[in-house]
Measured scan of single mutants.
Amino acid sequence: MTYRVRIENADGEVVTIEISADELREKGLTLEELLPPNARIVEVEEVEP
């Protein structure tokens, strides 16, 4: 499974990243732990691999 994640950074700019569930598991991280300081998740969407 892959996630498309929209993130708002500290400057108010919204960027989109895609990350797979396998990648998260391998790194032992959650989506929140990948965020840079002062950023927030705006939207998470599951996409087909």
Score class of each variant (00 low, 15 high):
Gly12Leu: 03
Ala21Pro: 04
Glu46Leu: 15
Arg25Thr: 08
Leu31Pro: 01
Glu32Thr: 09
Leu31Asn: 00
Glu13Asp: 09
Glu33Asp: 15
Glu33Lys: 07
Leu35Ile: 13
Leu29Asn: 04
Gly28Phe: 04
Ala21Trp: 12
Glu43Tyr: 14
Thr2His: 14
Asn38Ser: 06
Tyr3Leu: 11
Thr2Ala: 09
Glu32Lys: 10
Arg6His: 12
Asp11Gln: 11
Ile19Phe: 09
Pro49Ala: 14
Ile41Asn: 02
Val14Pro: 03
Ala21Gly: 09
Asn38Asp: 12
Met1Tyr: 12
Ala39Glu: 02
Leu34Met: 13
Leu34Ala: 12
Ala39Val: 14
Val5Tyr: 05
Met1Glu: 03
Ala10Glu: 14
Pro36Ser: 05
Arg25Lys: 10
Glu26Gly: 08
Glu32His: 09
Leu31Gly: 00
Ile41Met: 04
Glu32Trp: 13
Val47Arg: 05
Glu23Lys: 05
Glu48Cys: 08
Arg4Lys: 07
Tyr3Cys: 05
Arg4Ala: 02
Val14Ile: 14
Ala21Val: 09
Leu31Ile: 11
Thr30Lys: 10
Ile41Pro: 01
Leu29Lys: 10
Met1His: 08
Glu18His: 12
Asp22Ala: 14
Glu13Leu: 12
Asp22Glu: 12
Tyr3Ile: 06
Glu26Tyr: 11
Asn38Pro: 04
Glu48Ser: 13
Ile19Leu: 04
Leu24Ile: 07
Asn38Ala: 05
Ile41Lys: 03
Asp22Phe: 13
Ala21Ile: 09
Glu46Tyr: 14
Ala21Leu: 08
Met1Arg: 11
Pro36Arg: 03
Glu46Phe: 14
Glu33Leu: 06
Glu26Lys: 11
Val47His: 06
Thr2Glu: 03
Asp11Trp: 10
Leu24Asp: 00
Arg40Phe: 11
Val44Thr: 03
Asn9Gly: 09
Val15Asn: 06
Arg40Asp: 02
Thr30Ser: 10
Leu34Arg: 03
Arg25Asn: 09
Glu23Arg: 05
Arg4Cys: 03
Glu8Gly: 02
Arg40Thr: 08
Asp22Asn: 12
Val15Pro: 00
Arg25Met: 11
Glu45Leu: 14
Ile7Pro: 00
Pro37Tyr: 09
Pro49Val: 14
Ile41Glu: 01
Glu18Val: 14
Ile7Gln: 00
Asn9Leu: 15
Glu8Ala: 09
Val47Gln: 05
Glu32Val: 10
Asp22Lys: 13
Glu33Thr: 06
Arg25Val: 09
Val44Ile: 14
Arg6Glu: 03
Lys27Glu: 03
Gly12Pro: 00
Ala10Ser: 11
